[in-house]
């Protein structure tokens, strides 16, 4: 029984991590049709922001253990990644709308540039971001069942982010303009929506979310220049399975992949588990090419 609860929790946790890394991509790819291969690098930028905050501010803000720096790093990473994303949109992606293959190559190149930049600034070896004291350990439910605080924290954080994104998209004026532009660009422009501004802010929002994911992932994984490459494939997998352009689809897909991956891995091995999940996704996309929750198109 414990094992089942633990494994369900593990699946939920993996799902929340997948959702974290793919939410930003769902914006760029799903809403704007931009295949942003540099998405992983924005996760990396978020992780390094946490590292910079730890090195620069942990001492003056109650020490590494208190974790004030970590909390502050979350909005800071959003801003840093969003700013760089906006810069990339204005200087590069803007000129490539409607040319998906060119954007793919250009963002791939931009990703390599960002990786090498991180390598030059912070050095090639991994750096370490410590855990605040309140993220160490976990809820102990007896011998076989210990739910780490870090994983619970990521699940909560992702829930908060989804709430914020929902509010932004469906309850704010900016969100309304965004949806208008995505549905019919010309009509929205005619009605006075500055579509260029909407494009830039949407892309920046996506990369900013990647930055937040980066901060959260410092608690579970490595922090190095090539950090983004470990997550980019998973992120695309989630967005494609979820159905391009639908956030509920993305959420569903992340949880589905997370849970099925951990369950299959338990019965087989890590590699075979991943292969089985990929096969299942391919089979599903054969049956429903537009994903779990495809946008109705006319």
């Amino acid at each position: 029984m414990d094992a089942i609860i633990l494994q369900t929790f593990n699946g939920l946790s993996l799902g929340s991590i997948l959702l974290m890394v793919s939410l930003g991509l769902a914006f760029a790819f799903g809403l704007m049709g931009v295949i942003n291969m540099a998405h992983g690098e924005f996760i990396m930028i978020g992780a390094y922001t946490a590292y910079v905050f730890q090195e620069a501010f942990a001492h003056s803000l109650g020490g590494v253990e208190a974790g004030v720096w970590f909390v502050l790093a979350i909005p800071a990473a959003f801003l840093v990644a969003a700013l760089l994303g906006a810069l990339m949109e204005v200087t590069m992606i803007r000129f490539l709308y409607g040319r998906p293959l060119d954007t793919l190559l250009a963002t791939w190149g931009a990703g390599l540039v960002l990786q090498q930049a991180a390598r030059s600034i912070f050095g090639a070896p991994n750096v370490n971001v410590s855990s605040p004291i309140w993220l160490q350990g976990g809820f102990d439910f007896g011998a076989q069942l210990l739910l780490p605080y870090k994983r619970i924290f990521i699940i909560v954080l992702v829930a908060v982010i989804i709430g914020a994104v929902y509010f932004y998209l469906y309850r704010s004026a900016n969100g309304r303009r965004l949806r208008a532009v995505m549905q019919n660009r010309e009509m929205a422009s005619c009605l006075g929506v500055r579509s260029r501004w909407v494009d830039a802010s949407t892309f920046a929002l996506g990369t900013g979310l990647a930055g937040v994911a980066g901060v959260a992932l410092t608690q579970l994984g490595s922090i190095g220049p090539s950090l983004g490459t470990f997550y980019i494939v998973d992120a695309f997998m989630v967005v494609v399975l979820g159905g391009v352009g639908r956030l509920p689809g993305t959420i569903l897909a992340a949880l589905l992949i997370g849970i099925s991956n951990t369950l299959l891995e338990l019965g087989t091995s890590a590699t075979v588990g991943k292969v089985l999940v990929l096969l299942a996704i391919i089979a599903f996309l054969q049956w429903k090419p537009s994903g779990l929750a495809a946008l109705q198109t006319r």
Binding site: G221, S222, Y231, T262
Partner: peptide
Amino acid sequence: TEFSTIISKIEEAKPDAIFNTLNGDSNVA
């Protein structure tokens, strides 16, 4: 980077020691 299931398996197997030949960033995770 995801080790939750493997750690569950290790918990179940109750070994006395682990011989680790992981390479690169996986070690951190």
